[in-house]
């Protein structure tokens, strides 16, 4: 590991200035992903700027029933917060489906959003990887790929985003608050992460030095749930996960939102399936047809092909469960 300097600034402005002015600087949250990357030699910041003691460690209700989650709130505290458990159970369920108890006690909200793919080639610096070393090639295409993308991939990268939390935030239409050297801005969660295209080294639309300070959750109606399918019952990344929210009125779908995890370079909002269902009947046939319409765009190229029927069946199962609770 390369030597690094360490700073703990007093406020967000100072933190942003420290990182924005140095290409080799990085923000440090809980460290559960970045410290591992430094050990693996795939990240080597020259300056770490600790942002865990900035005053972004609370969950509070703002005007208009918006719930603001501070960027430094630990995953465990967020999953256990009464406002989240009662109003956004899908988020609490997604959080406790991720990592282990020890890691959730360290990992932060912003760090969870910014964690990087668990593609084995990205984490192994002896192999080509366009995300880690742009232009070196993609070892996963034609290689070990059962955990990788079936939607929105490119010829340069088939990595998946590993977060459970971000998938729940996608259906909740969260808004990410960001502070940068030129001021602050709000980013809809769907525009935070990007598809790989020809720049797979860029996971998000954030500029260097931009700091996530909070995530806002607008009020929602209906019932919601998160379901995660993985190789073992606990402490594993998703093969496929589904977050969904269903609001039923007069026996029809008044509103539905679906997001998929483990299938793309970003939490995948299933807008095609949603459009199929909105205003329509509540039935297993309708759920299946909507899921199949969404997955028409799926383009698996290797061993990840099993995820297409798995995603379809998981979407149907989650919608069935939600409709029975509506």
């Amino acid at each position: 590991m390369k030597a690094f300097a360490f700073e703990r600034p007093r406020d967000a402005e100072a933190a942003v200035a420290l990182v924005a002015n140095r290409p080799g600087a990085a923000f440090l949250g809980g460290g559960t992903n970045l410290v591992d990357h430094m050990k693996l030699g795939i990240a080597s910041p020259e300056l770490l700027v600790d942002v865990t003691r900035l005053p972004f460690d609370t969950v509070e209700e703002l005007d208009g029933r918006v719930v603001r989650i501070g960027a430094a709130v630990r995953n465990s505290d967020l999953s256990a917060h009464p406002l989240i458990r009662e109003r956004y159970p899908v988020l609490s369920e997604a959080l406790v489906a991720g990592a282990s108890g020890q890691l959730r006690n360290l990992a932060t909200t912003a760090g969870n959003l910014l964690q990087r793919t668990r593609c084995v080639y990205f984490q192994d610096r002896t192999t080509p990887c366009n995300k880690r070393a742009p232009g070196s090639g993609c070892s996963a295409i034609g290689g070990y790929s059962r955990e990788l993308a079936i939607l929105g991939a490119s010829e340069h990268c088939i990595a998946t985003h590993p977060s459970d939390m971000a998938v729940a935030m996608a259906v909740l239409e969260a808004v990410v608050q960001v502070q940068g050297p030129d001021g602050s801005r709000s980013i809809p969660i769907g525009e935070l992460h990007r598809l790989p295209g020809d720049e797979p080294e860029r996971d998000t639309t954030l500029a260097h030095g931009e700091l996530i300070t909070a995530v806002d959750l607008p009020p929602v109606a209906g019932v919601s749930a998160y379901r995660k399918v993985r190789d073992r019952a606990s402490f594993a990344f998703a093969l496929v996960s589904v977050a969904a929210l269903l609001d039923v009125a007069d026996g029809k779908v008044a509103d539905v939102r679906i997001a998929l995890g483990g299938v793309a370079h970003k939490p995948w909002r299933a807008e095609t399936a949603e459009a199929h269902l909105r205003g329509g009947p509540i039935s297993e046939d309708a759920f299946r047809a909507a899921a199949e319409a969404e997955l028409e765009a799926a383009a698996p190229i290797g061993e990840e092909a099993f995820k297409v029927p798995l995603a379809r069946n998981t979407i149907v199962a989650v919608l069935r469960d939600l409709s029975e609770r509506s």
Binding site: F6, L28, G31, V35, L48, Q102, L103, L106
Partner: peptide, 19 residues
């Protein structure tokens, strides 16, 4: 490597001491 850090269980291998 789990210990209690300020009363909460954490893995200490992924935490820099300086933090």
């Amino acid at each position: 490597c789990t210990v209690l850090l300020n009363g909460r269980r954490v893995t200490t291998c992924l935490a820099f001491a300086v933090q």
